[in-house]
C-alpha cells in the first residue's frame, strides 16, 4: 500500500525527478540496529544574520574578505561564510566581546567615512590599508589600548579560525594532505 503511494506520487513528478525506483530488497530483521547518516545544518542550509545590523555586517564581511581572501583553491572568508558564522558566534558571546566587535566595526566605518568619504564596506584594498595599520604592528602579549586595534586583532584570529575550521576548508583540503580534515576526539555529554 505504502509503496504504491510513493510510486503514484513519483509518476506525477517532472521526468528528471522520476528516476526509476531501485528494486526492493528484503528489509533487515526488525531487531537489527542500523546506523543512519546525518548532516549538520551548515551542510544543507545558510545561517541567518541575527546580531549585527546591516551596516555593521557589511563592514564585517568586507573585513573578512580583506583578512582572508581565497587563494590557490583554498576558501577565503567569503567561501567559508565566516562573517555569517561570526554574526552567530558573537551574538552568543559575553557582552564584553559583543561590545568589542560592535564598537570596532563602527569605528572602522567612521574611519573610512572620514578618510575616504565612503562606507568601510565600499573601500578598496588600497584604501583599507591605512585603516588596518594596527595589524602590521609586531605582536605583544598585552592587548593594545586602542579599542579599534584590539578589535582588529581579535577579528583576525576569529576569521582565521572560522575559515580554517569551515566545511569549505575541509572540502578543499580533503585528499590533499593527511590530517587536514581537522578530525578530533569528541567527548559526548554523559547522561
Amino acid at each position: 500500500m505504502k509503496r504504491r503511494t510513493i510510486l503514484g506520487s513519483a509518476l506525477s513528478l517532472p521526468a528528471a525527478w522520476a528516476a526509476p525506483a531501485p528494486a526492493q530488497t528484503a528489509p533487515p530483521p526488525a531487531e537489527t540496529a542500523v546506523k543512519l547518516a546525518f548532516d549538520s545544518p551548515e551542510a544543507a542550509a545558510a545561517g541567518v544574520r541575527r546580531f549585527f545590523d546591516e551596516t555593521e555586517f557589511a563592514a564585517l564581511e568586507r573585513l573578512g574578505r580583506l583578512l582572508i581572501p581565497s587563494a590557490e583553491g583554498l576558501p577565503g572568508a567569503v567561501e567559508a561564510e565566516a562573517a555569517l558564522f561570526l554574526d552567530f558566534l558573537i551574538g552568543q558571546s559575553p557582552a564584553e566581546r559583543q561590545t568589542l566587535y560592535r564598537e570596532g566595526l563602527r569605528a572602522l566605518h567612521a574611519a573610512a567615512r572620514q578618510r575616504w568619504g565612503k562606507a568601510f564596506a565600499a573601500v578598496s584594498d588600497e584604501e583599507a590599508a591605512p585603516l588596518l595599520a594596527p595589524l602590521r604592528q609586531a605582536w605583544t602579549r598585552s592587548a593594545p589600548h586602542d579599542p579599534l586595534a584590539r578589535f582588529l586583532l581579535a577579528a583576525k584570529d576569529d576569521f582565521w579560525q572560522a575559515v580554517a575550521n569551515s566545511r569549505a576548508q575541509a572540502r578543499a583540503l580533503s585528499g590533499r594532505r593527511r590530517g587536514a580534515s581537522g578530525l578530533g576526539l569528541y567527548w559526548h555529554a554523559a547522561e
Binding site: S40, G182, L183, L185, H188
Partner: peptide, 9 residues
C-alpha cells in the same frame, strides 16, 4: 562516549 569528528561538523 568518544568519537572522531571533523571540526567543521
Amino acid at each position: 562516549d568518544r568519537s572522531l569528528r571533523p571540526v567543521s561538523d
